[in-house]
Every structure is written in structure tokens, then in C-alpha cells.
């Protein structure tokens, strides 16, 4: 009965399983990204490949890492630019 009253009065709005799922989602993003040391290296190589088509970058200075914040996890890439290529308009 208390259960019903609780729901009627808007208590218990967020079932704890939603909290569990969200926490699990964030922790697994981090776990899966950091478990394999090659994982970030692979991303880094491919990102360099894509970017160099548009600009000259300092390839040795490229840093790719996973940052956990309060409610999110982000892939952060720091890519020092040496020189921009002249924009060639497609189409």
C-alpha cells in the first residue's frame, strides 16, 4: 500500500535500475576503451590519416585519450596544426 501511495505522490520517480544502467554504460565505455592499449593507437593512426588530407599536422604531437566526466565519457584528441592546406571546394 505504501508502494502505491509513494507512486501517487510522485516519490520513487527514478527506479534505481535506471541509475545502474547509466553507471554501467559509462563505466563500460571507459573499460572497453582502456582495456586494450592498441585501441587508442589504432584510432590515433586513422584520425591522423583523415586529418592530413586537410592540413599539415605535427604527427608526433597528436594525443588521443578518453576523459571521464561526471555524466559522460569523451574521446579527446589534441592535434597540433602546422599549416592549413588551401581549401579546395568540392562539387
Amino acid at each position: 500500500m505504501l508502494d502505491i501511495l509513494g507512486r501517487v505522490f510522485g516519490r520513487d520517480d527514478a527506479p534505481s535500475k535506471e541509475i545502474a544502467k547509466e553507471r554501467l554504460r559509462l563505466v563500460l565505455v571507459h573499460d572497453r576503451a582502456t582495456v586494450s592499449p592498441q585501441f587508442l593507437e589504432l584510432i590515433k593512426e586513422e584520425v591522423i590519416g583523415v586529418i592530413t588530407g586537410y592540413m599539415d599536422i605535427d604527427e608526433d604531437g597528436v594525443e588521443v585519450s578518453i576523459h571521464s566526466m561526471d555524466k559522460s565519457v569523451a574521446l579527446v584528441a589534441n592535434i597540433p596544426i602546422r599549416r592549413m592546406k588551401r581549401a579546395v571546394k568540392a562539387v
Binding site: 508502494d3 527506479p15 534505481s16 535500475k17
Partner: peptide, 9 residues
Amino acid sequence: RGDMMDIDD
């Protein structure tokens, strides 16, 4: 009652 993850989750 939503206090435990279910199979699908």
C-alpha cells in the same frame, strides 16, 4: 518495481 536490471537490460 524497477529496482533491479532485467534480462533485456
